[in-house]
Design a protein around this nucleic acid. Sequence first.
DNA 1: TGTAGGTTCTTAATCGATTTACTTAATGGT
DNA 2: ACCATTAAGTAAATCGATTAAGAACCTACA
Lengths: 343, 343
Amino acid sequence: MTKPKTWTLKSIAKELGVSNATVSNAFNRPDQLSKARREEILAACKKLGYFGPNKAAQSLRRGTFNIVALVLPDSVEYMVSDPVASSFMRGVSAVLEKNGINLLLFSGNNDNLNSVVDFVDGFICYGRPRNKQLVEQLKQVAKHVVTVDFNIGRDASVNVNNQQASFDIAKHALQKNDDRVAILGLRLLDNDVLCRVYEHNEFEAGQSIAHQRLRGYHQAISDAGITLGDDRTWNIPESSERYASIAAKEALSSTPRPNVLLCMSDLIALAAMREALKMGLSIPEDVRIVGFDGIDEGQRFVPKLTTVHQNSEEKGRIAATLFLSKEQQTAEIDYQLQLGQSS
Amino acid sequence: MTKPKTWTLKSIAKELGVSNATVSNAFNRPDQLSKARREEILAACKKLGYFGPNKAAQSLRRGTFNIVALVLPDSVEYMVSDPVASSFMRGVSAVLEKNGINLLLFSGNNDNLNSVVDFVDGFICYGRPRNKQLVEQLKQVAKHVVTVDFNIGRDASVNVNNQQASFDIAKHALQKNDDRVAILGLRLLDNDVLCRVYEHNEFEAGQSIAHQRLRGYHQAISDAGITLGDDRTWNIPESSERYASIAAKEALSSTPRPNVLLCMSDLIALAAMREALKMGLSIPEDVRIVGFDGIDEGQRFVPKLTTVHQNSEEKGRIAATLFLSKEQQTAEIDYQLQLGQSS
DNA sequence: TGTAGGTTCTTAATCGATTTACTTAATGGT
DNA sequence: ACCATTAAGTAAATCGATTAAGAACCTACA
């Protein structure tokens, strides 16, 4: 009697003596058939053990999947180990779960979005992936993207209010109007070069995170009555110990030797602190250093780093909400200054 | 020239003037066409920006997905917050990632496997889900399942060596041959009843985790030269505070009052400790209590719980490996006795 | 009675691939 | 020169659904 051991829409339709379309409509579009017919079909399906249209086929046809891929900055392992990252995940998953959307973990070690792009509705990307290819692919092939803590000029992103936060932390670092300020910037330029930046037209208008932070610094500096020399800004192409150390050494050896270092990431700030200490300078007496991010290591370092810390779980919730809304915008999340002894 | 903005196998084939099959074969079965033709096609695809067959369509056709769903005992939130659970996840993901398999998080709050069963290769199920429906569905509709810490009599499972571990912990708890032992068992019976078990034929042969543990206890008891009364065993239908308290109270009020309580989970053991203290008994002087699992709360409790602790990350690695091997077997993982002051 | 409109259901194209069975051409042995 | 193999490529069925277009019937109004 019951023909196949596993039912399909087609075999069910044949069994019940109706068309494919009618069965499909019974499940998806109640207005397309009579109530009686619909209930009859649904009941029969239940009895026969057909649980509804196959989701894989449905997805292929419709082009929607109810899956979003969370692009991790690193391995999945890292993600569940790191407390900040996993509280972000908590926020994301809480929102998605409530909406019946499944979460797929996409490791940052993976070098090809193509392996998943065909069966997800889009991506939430937590931090700029190391792998540049990945960023390109996000731009080009993703149906929908929400980026977190960085920007690719597509769809939505969630960030701290970089300009305000940078203003706050810089204001805190600056004390007198004869302070000698230097800025260690992260990815101020498009090209991957470590350099001292003398001038850049787009700084005042740019929408990248680095530019936003730069404006915050500039405003605080100017509010403090300080004039920033036009050779006081360095560009570091990526937040790595190696590059940061080189830039920090150069900045701290430059004339006039800065006594305030505004760093666009904690990693940079920590590298700068190490260099300063190596040069025999004392912190914060000889040089005050502030970072951005609020990573754990900054709190363990002696002296403790003064920096900007963000609410990670809320960030996750907002990222997911933004994803679901499909709107194109930049959302902001809360932050607090985390005061250490480095400034 | 380049017709569609998004290429498909078909449109590519037409563009190149070959058949669908040939393009497909170029990607999947190199032996089906000449080397020259193949390289020509692959090169053309690259140039045109076709990244290979659509995975969703491929999956529908082939019936394989390169996705495994991790069924969580609770919300995703819980999973990334709980250290034991997330170290399990770390193990799982490390292995899957190495094999290019994607990990989908399936919340235990979800009540219907059907929403994902059609697009995953199978399930790794971490702990018996609260939701009984889920268990039934795992049995019936899953293509492949590895269960962890419980057993559904299908495919593979990974567990601690329950019998050996129970033997060890019981042996540790027993001191003299006039000890009065009682057992607080978890899910010894199929039906969901809280009761005192007098006799059960299948105990000696049963393959459920509870039965394995029971055999371990029995062996240790008999080795210690003790005869276990036939009314000294309780069945608790689920590891909850409420049931456990009732059973513990009953056991501790029974005659002869036990001075050793072998509990099949830490939750049960903790409930028993609370009841004992409430009754004015001192631990371990009046009654020694041991658990099973190694949950955090047991280590915070005063007195600290003596129990069996497992290597969670390895458990994850083994579960994933077992999943990939598709073999049907039960794997074992390491455990250690965690000695507290409760025995 | 003729026709406009509304329900209810079906036919057939489509989503983007894989794969079996088949055609055609080339090769080799005798 | 003939037949048997093998290689290279193609046509068409299939995976399991959705959905636009249209057929069949029923109602109602002039």
